[in-house]
Lab assay of single mutants.
Amino acid sequence: TGIVNVSSSLNVRSSASTSSKVIGSLSGNTKVTIVGEEGAFYKIEYKGSHGYVAAEYI
């Protein structure tokens, strides 16, 4: 489990890349469940599926 540490919002992406499609966003202080790690990204549970967020902001 981690907490989103941004002042505005954090993009949730379809894969572990900044060039991948943005599938949603999370606001600051949102609690997320981390299920894996790929490079600089965490794989998280997101809306019944999975998404990827930049690990530096969690």
Score class of each variant (00 low, 15 high):
T1G: 07
G2P: 04
G2E: 03
G2W: 11
G2S: 06
G2T: 06
I3G: 04
I3M: 09
V4C: 07
N5F: 08
V6E: 06
S7L: 12
S7H: 12
S7M: 12
S7G: 11
S7P: 10
S8I: 12
S9F: 13
L10Y: 03
L10D: 02
L10T: 09
N11E: 15
N11A: 15
N11Y: 13
N11Q: 14
N11S: 14
V12G: 00
V12P: 00
V12C: 04
R13Y: 15
R13M: 15
R13A: 06
R13D: 03
R13P: 02
S14D: 13
S14Y: 11
S14N: 09
S14H: 11
S15G: 13
A16G: 06
A16F: 04
A16T: 06
A16V: 05
A16P: 14
T18F: 15
T18Y: 15
T18V: 12
T18K: 12
S19L: 10
S20L: 04
S20Q: 01
S20W: 05
K21G: 08
V22H: 04
V22K: 06
I23F: 03
G24C: 05
G24I: 03
G24L: 03
S25F: 13
S25E: 12
S25Q: 14
L26T: 02
S27G: 10
S27Y: 09
G28M: 11
G28H: 14
G28S: 12
N29T: 07
N29R: 09
K31T: 12
K31H: 10
K31V: 14
V32S: 00
V32M: 03
T33F: 10
T33G: 03
T33M: 09
T33C: 14
T33K: 12
T33H: 09
I34K: 00
I34D: 00
V35N: 03
V35I: 14
V35W: 07
G36R: 05
G36M: 06
E37R: 15
E37L: 15
E38F: 10
G39P: 02
G39S: 05
A40V: 09
F41T: 02
F41R: 00
F41L: 03
F41M: 05
Y42W: 06
Y42R: 02
K43T: 03
I44E: 00
E45K: 10
E45H: 08
Y46W: 11
Y46M: 02
Y46D: 00
Y46P: 00
K47F: 09
G48P: 03
S49K: 11
S49D: 08
S49Y: 09
S49Q: 12
S49E: 09
H50V: 14
H50Q: 06
G51R: 01
G51T: 01
V53S: 01
V53D: 00
V53C: 03
A54C: 15
A54D: 10
A54I: 14
A54L: 15
A55W: 06
A55N: 06
A55S: 13
E56V: 11
Y57M: 08
Y57K: 07
Y57F: 14
I58Q: 02
I58W: 04
I58G: 01
I58K: 02
I58L: 06
